[in-house]
Amino acid sequence: MKSAVVVFPGINRERDMMLALETVTGSKPVSVWHTETELPKVDLVVVPGGFSYGDYLRCGAIAARSPIMQDIRAKALKGLKVLGVCNGFQIITEAGLLPGVLVRNKDLRFVCRQVKLKVENNQTFFTNRMQKGAIVSCPVAHGEGNYICDAETLKRLEAENRVVFRYAEGTNPNGALNDIAGIMNESGSVIGMMPHPENMIEPLHGRTDCRPLFESLLAA
C-alpha cells in the first residue's frame, strides 16, 4: 500500500499521520509539497491536519487552490483514494471533493479532547476492519468542525449511507448537522473526517481504538 501525505505551509499533523501510516501499514509514505504539480504513483493520498495558511480567508480555502490540489482533484475523480483529516477535511471540502462546508464551532470554542465516534458505514477503504455501529474513542482538535450543508445534500448523504462517522450521542463537540464527524463522496474514493485517528493507534496514545481504521487500508 503506497501512500502520500500532502504538506502545505501551516500544516502540523503530517508527521503524526506519516508515522501512523508507516506503523500500521508497514510502508513509509511519501511527503508531497504543495507546489508540486504531480503526485507520485500511490494508492492513497492523505491531506493531514493543521492550520494551512493560518486559516486565512476561510479554513482550507487557500490550500484547496494550490498546484498539487489540481492533480489530486483530477485523480480523485478517477478513483484515487483520498483521506482528509481535520484541516485536510476542510481543504478537500473547499476543493469541491466533498459537499458542504465546515464552519466555526457552534459555541466559538476551540475543542481539544476525546470524543466517541460511531462507525456508521463499515464498507469503506478506511473502515472495513470495523464493526458497523462500533463506538471508538478518538481525539478532536479544531475550531471549525461544524459541518453544514443544504437540506437536500444532507438528505442525500444520509440516504446514500455516506455519513461514515458520527459523534456518538452527547459528544458532538461543534454543533455539526446530524452529529456528522466524517463523510465520503458518491463513489467512496474520498473520505473526510474532523477527528484525528492518527493519534489513537498505539499504547503511548492511551488507547489504540483507531488502529483498525489504518489496518483497513491494507484490505482496501
Binding site: 476561510r58 480555502a61 487552490r65
Partner: peptide, 9 residues
Amino acid sequence: EKLIANTVI
C-alpha cells in the same frame, strides 16, 4: 465564485 466566497454558505 472560485475563491473569495464559498457559495455554499
